[in-house]
Nucleic acid binder design. Structure first.
Lengths: 140, 140
DNA sequence: CCTATTTCAGTGTTACTGAGATCG
DNA sequence: CCGATCTCAGTATCACTGAAATAG
């Protein structure tokens, strides 16, 4: 970075690193035919089991307006199924299909290789330390 | 984070940390009546001296279309002055005014206190280590 | 009545793209 | 004619807001 003031400024370095990671991830997922929202939604479904769209949106931290389109796309590709909740007619229960589970496994691999690429300059110990330090400042 | 898959994922932690830093910075600068672009432009001017708008944009990593509005705002507040380059009529030379220098000093303080707030959970040694690790993966 | 869910349409933000005018 | 500079207008993106319909 050409500006002295910025090149060891934490907020700046975080922005650069995050942008680079985000770019790598978006590109890698796009190559696999997915976007971040799809991965997060599939992961939430696998970890928490079938859930209403609203619950799923909260778990995967999707905006309520984006949940609809995201799940519709996943359903169109046969990765999830949506059915009305017999106990509460407002809800639609979303479940992961076998194809969805396989897709998630594949995307897990894509995501892992992006981490590898992003952290390539660091040793295993340094990677662990970075994760620890980021966890302390990430908030939430 | 409610999802196991994400809570120690570097790209995810970087996004959270970066977003938190960005929010703190934007808010603190707004309270001081500035935005990130203003700070970067003023800093570039102080570090590199008077420069054309295009050069300044490259130094401060502003988009070419945003340079105009940013500098117009700074000029309206008397923080920079713009004058035609006598040697090249395409260029407008931008210089930092005394008021601009004072404002930059004040914003440096604002930016520093944001770093302090963001990194509050870390010791001095941890902060240095984080900066070092981020520098290695930030790219550019 | 009030709250929760699902959905759609529109807004706001922030970066960027395209193109024109000027000039070396 | 090519390339750089400055400028404006318009677009793309992404998260979000408002509001409506439905139901507990």
């Amino acid at each position: 970075v050409p500006l002295d003031r910025l090149d060891s400024l934490p907020t700046w370095l975080l922005n650069r690193s995050s942008a680079r990671g985000h770019r790598l991830l978006t590109e890698a997922l796009a190559e696999a035919g997915a976007r971040g929202y799809h991965y997060r939604a599939l992961a939430a479904l696998e970890e928490q089991g079938p859930a209403s769209q609203a619950t799923l949106g909260r778990l995967a931290e999707l905006d309520r307006s984006d949940v609809v389109a995201t799940l519709a796309e996943l359903e169109a590709n046969g990765l999830v199924a949506r059915a009305p909740d017999p106990d509460d007619a407002r809800r639609r229960i979303v479940t992961l299909t076998a194809a969805g589970r396989r897709r998630l496994k594949r995307l897990d691999g894509v995501v892992a290789s992006v981490q590898e690429e992003l952290l390539a300059p660091l040793s295993a110990a340094e990677r662990a330390e970075l994760i620890r330090l980021l966890g302390r400042i990430a908030g939430r």
